[in-house]
Design a protein around this nucleic acid. Sequence first.
DNA 1: ATTGCCTAAATGTCAGACCAATTAGCAGGG
DNA 2: CCCTGCTAATTGGTCTGACATTTAGGCAAT
Lengths: 243, 243
Amino acid sequence: MDLIKRVRIYEMVVEKIKALITEGHYQVGDLLPTEREFAQRYGVSRSAVREAMIVLHRLGMVDNIPGKGTVVVTDSEPSVNDYLLELLNAEEQSIINLLELRKGIEIEAVSLAAKRCTKKDLAVLQEKLELLEKAVEKGEVAAKEDHDFHVTLSSITKNDLYITVMTAISSVMQNTLEKTRAETLNKPGGPPRVLSEHKAIVHAIKNNDDEKARKAMRLHLDNVLHKTYQELDHKNIKQVKSR
Amino acid sequence: MDLIKRVRIYEMVVEKIKALITEGHYQVGDLLPTEREFAQRYGVSRSAVREAMIVLHRLGMVDNIPGKGTVVVTDSEPSVNDYLLELLNAEEQSIINLLELRKGIEIEAVSLAAKRCTKKDLAVLQEKLELLEKAVEKGEVAAKEDHDFHVTLSSITKNDLYITVMTAISSVMQNTLEKTRAETLNKPGGPPRVLSEHKAIVHAIKNNDDEKARKAMRLHLDNVLHKTYQELDHKNIKQVKSR
DNA sequence: ATTGCCTAAATGTCAGACCAATTAGCAGGG
DNA sequence: CCCTGCTAATTGGTCTGACATTTAGGCAAT
């Protein structure tokens, strides 16, 4: 049985305005037409437009400024991914917790990748590895290249959940690393070692050796965890000294 | 510098009504006071109350029914967990994808648990195992006992992310199993084998042997995956036959 | 007992008014 | 000429009152 669903007017206005933003008729930072104009344009009352504005505001898409107007804050509506990011990004979550979760996710991901990797997948992954290599040779932090590599790796699993979760974890880590100046990767003897670990992972995937791939990934992430522990210890010591 | 934040009236009304619901002044299914009464009670206009109602409705806490009133749908505001559930529960996600993700999460979780398990933790876990055992002996499906066991296991990691994610995965799987009549656990030779796998996991944790714990968990989840594959094949065959 | 209609009350929507904040323009003093 | 401060217009924020639509319950006719 199909139940008839009441459709509130403000909901239709929300969709209309949302479409205007996502389709690019108004860019981020632009001022939307006034509420009174929307009301006239859509043949509804200003109340309906205001209710729609409240929804759009709570979606984080617009900001209503009295005396000025309504400004576009972002051009895309929040997705489930954003909520996942919120979970991972919560301040209570330590970077250690995040790294441990990543360990579970990525070790199994690389295992699946080793079993399911096609020639095309491998080519893309090796390309990402080369980009990472070049960036490291230039002495860059290469955070973006590292992110790309790991996301590409997760995509080889062909499992949307791994792709979504790994993408979220990786971007949160990238943010965290930016805040902490990415000291981890910059430490003496850091990048070359990280690079060789990445190569070992790709090598195992190439041979479709899932067990070796897991071991290589576990080794890599244990090293990252170890360095992070050292870094945290170092900071704590500095904090104590500064008292 | 502390910026002064404009506080919209409807936001305060939202907090007021939300508190009334979460504190139990109104139970699920109850009819809230009318919008006009709220307006009078809080000394605001009905517009403000209506805007608050829209927010509460979009939070999924209330349902506004014309001619009747506003009924309470749930007594707790949605948390990040609910959005995680939404991600995992999305129809596009196959049960296979979910199981594969669970493999990554839980293998590493049991590894952490083996390293961090206290005597008290172990006692609780063994208690859950006994409950599972008794339920299986009675010939029950024991879905809830299985859920409890795995959530307890994840809590031993002391890592909030693992606890949150594992709880979500487990409850989604429980729902899915309910829909599919939990055939997996009911198959001949199913429960006893599952039980022995659980015992092996607990045994490894007891000995703080993280590597053996991972292997035991991998074996267990591979078996679950295998059975699920068989089940899906079986259903496909039945579907073909019924054409 | 069922059907149909009437009424009361609630939400949904509308129109208009006023308040508060912002902006732009203009007048006046330096 | 430039800066200051006032004024008016514009915009979102709130309030009020009205009407439309939906629901529930009472009541009479069938």
